[in-house]
Simulated scan of single mutants.
Amino acid sequence: MRVELDEPKCVAAGQCVMAAPDVFDQRDEDGVAVVLDEHPGAELLDGVREAVAICPAAAIRLVEE
């Protein structure tokens, strides 16, 4: 699985960071999300799926490879 983030769509709500802090962070200057781990392990996928579901901008995708 690969995490994709559409940065221009991100509204800097930080929900992804709260759902999956090992996978997402936010830039200090504007709060836009960044992906820390594009290929998270199985133990992190529940948090990533939650981040995808609660992202207010629908800026996150989880892609099967």
Rank of each mutant, 00 (worst) to 15 (best):
R27F: 09
P21Y: 02
P8N: 07
L44N: 11
E65D: 15
A51T: 10
P56F: 06
D30W: 02
G31M: 09
A59E: 07
Q15I: 00
G14P: 12
D46I: 04
R27K: 15
P8H: 12
C16W: 08
A53M: 11
D22L: 13
D6Y: 07
D28Y: 03
Q26K: 13
M18Y: 04
E29S: 14
E43G: 01
A53Y: 03
A51F: 11
V34H: 09
L45G: 03
R2D: 12
G41Y: 06
I60C: 03
V52I: 05
Q15M: 15
A20W: 02
V34R: 14
A59P: 00
D6E: 14
R2W: 02
D6A: 08
G47K: 08
D46S: 13
P56V: 10
D46Q: 11
K9H: 06
R49K: 15
E38Y: 01
Q15E: 14
A33N: 03
C10S: 10
A53D: 15
V3L: 06
C16T: 03
R2F: 13
D25W: 05
A53H: 09
A58G: 12
A33V: 02
R49P: 01
A12H: 10
M1F: 04
R2Y: 10
P40L: 03
G14D: 10
A20C: 06
A20V: 02
E50Y: 09
A51K: 11
R61C: 03
V35R: 07
E64I: 04
F24I: 01
A51M: 09
G41E: 14
C10M: 08
F24N: 10
D28E: 15
I54F: 07
P40R: 05
L36T: 07
V17K: 01
G14I: 01
C16D: 12
